[in-house]
Computed example of a mutant assay.
Amino acid sequence: MYEILIILVLLLLGGYFYWQNHIHKVTSYTVSLPKDYASLKDKKIVFISDTHFRKNISHFLIDRVLLEIEKVNPEVILFGGDIVHEVSHDQVIEHTKDFFSQLSKIAPTYVVYGNHDLKSDRKKEMTDTLKRVGVTLLDNESVWLTFEDSDIGIHLIGLSEEMSSISMKQDALSQINLSNEHKKGLKILLAHYPQFIEKYRKDETKIPDLILSGDTHGGQVILPFVGGLYVPGQGFNPYYDFGIFTNETYPSSRLIISRGLGNSSFPLRINNRPEIVMIKFI
């Protein structure tokens, strides 16, 4: 009798951990815009991050993620860094090519690198792969996005910096040049590290309307009524773990942190399923 109970418990635990690590969820946010940006109403952005591709990946998860994004039918797909965890195997580059080639067929796709990407000894190969499949890598720069049925566009800014360098900067966007031709436009920042948010808002002329970050994996373990357990660079019980953050000083500037799709060095997610973020402007 006890043996049967133990087997049942183990099966339930196995099913729970599989669900937590291989069955994604979609988190939807609506972002209200000022009247000046009314023509961007109903535009949809998909934001994903932290796939941490290894030699062996869950093709079941990746296939479901691609199907979900295709179903959303976004105008733009944004990726917040840490494509790879290790690139000692050629399969990791192949995973990168396969995944991002599919994304770019769904919608224009823009990427920033995270710390794992930047320290990779095959970064150039990864960069060439992204370019070859039609993905735009934002390396400390801004691009101007337009839509056929909108009279206003988006300044999409992408930071690609090591944690050690960005933490030393008072103004993280000092090197970013926004197009003088387009004085007016929604500003969206892709930046891997959410904890440096105040440095992203240092220049009042460049304060992003929306900041999209990853890196945290939601704290890897989410405790009820507490939040994420631990994030490197923030420690235990981190403030910036996942979700949407607002600030009274900057009421029109919002931060959204993705819990990511993959795992870093710790191999399990607990109470913290892989996440696709869907943002709709209203």
Score class of each variant (00 low, 15 high):
Gln91Ala: 13
Met1Asn: 13
Asn56Ala: 14
Thr216Pro: 04
Glu248Val: 13
Thr51Trp: 00
Val87Ile: 12
Asn271Gly: 02
Pro208Ser: 05
Asp121Val: 08
Tyr193Gly: 04
Leu130Glu: 02
Glu275Gln: 09
Thr136Ile: 04
Gly235Ile: 01
Lys55Ile: 10
Pro238Thr: 02
Ile257Trp: 00
His85Lys: 15
Ser165Ile: 15
Thr30Gln: 12
Lys280Asp: 01
Asp117Ala: 08
Asp203Gly: 03
Ser58Pro: 09
Ser160Met: 03
Gly134Thr: 01
Glu204Phe: 09
Pro208Arg: 01
Gly243Arg: 05
Pro108Gly: 05
Ser142Asp: 10
Ile62Asp: 04
His85Gly: 14
His182Trp: 07
Asn271Ile: 08
Ala172Phe: 06
Asn272Arg: 05
Thr51Gln: 03
Val76Arg: 05
Leu103Phe: 00
Phe245His: 06
Tyr37Met: 10
Leu255Phe: 13
Ile256Val: 12
Leu8Pro: 12
Ile57Ser: 07
His22Tyr: 12
Leu178Val: 00
Asn271Arg: 11
Ile6Glu: 11
Ile176Cys: 05
Val46Tyr: 00
Ile154Asp: 00
Ser150Val: 04
Met126Ile: 11
Leu145Arg: 00
Ser253Trp: 03
Ser253Gln: 07
Leu173Asn: 03
Val84Pro: 01
Leu212Ser: 06
Glu3Leu: 15
Glu162Met: 15
Arg64Trp: 02
Tyr16Gln: 07
Thr136Pro: 03
Tyr230Asp: 08
Gly80Met: 01
Leu212Val: 03
Tyr113Ile: 06
Thr136Gly: 05
Ile83Tyr: 02
Ser252Arg: 13
Thr27Asn: 05
Arg54Asp: 12
Glu94Gly: 14
Tyr239Phe: 12
Ser167Tyr: 11
Val231Ser: 03
Ile83Phe: 09
Met278Cys: 14
Pro232Gly: 15
Phe245Glu: 07
Lys25Met: 09
Phe17Gln: 06
Val112Lys: 01
Ile282Asp: 13
Glu198Tyr: 14
Gly233Val: 00
Lys123Glu: 12
Lys202Arg: 14
Val277Leu: 08
Ser160Arg: 02
Arg54Pro: 07
Lys55Trp: 12
Thr136Asp: 05
Ala172Leu: 06
Gln195Leu: 09
Tyr16Ala: 08
Asp50Gly: 00
Asp63Tyr: 12
Val226Gly: 11
Ala191Ser: 12
Arg201Phe: 07
Ile197Tyr: 10
Val26Cys: 13
Leu189Arg: 04
Pro232Tyr: 07
Phe100Ser: 04
Ser101Pro: 05
Leu61Phe: 02
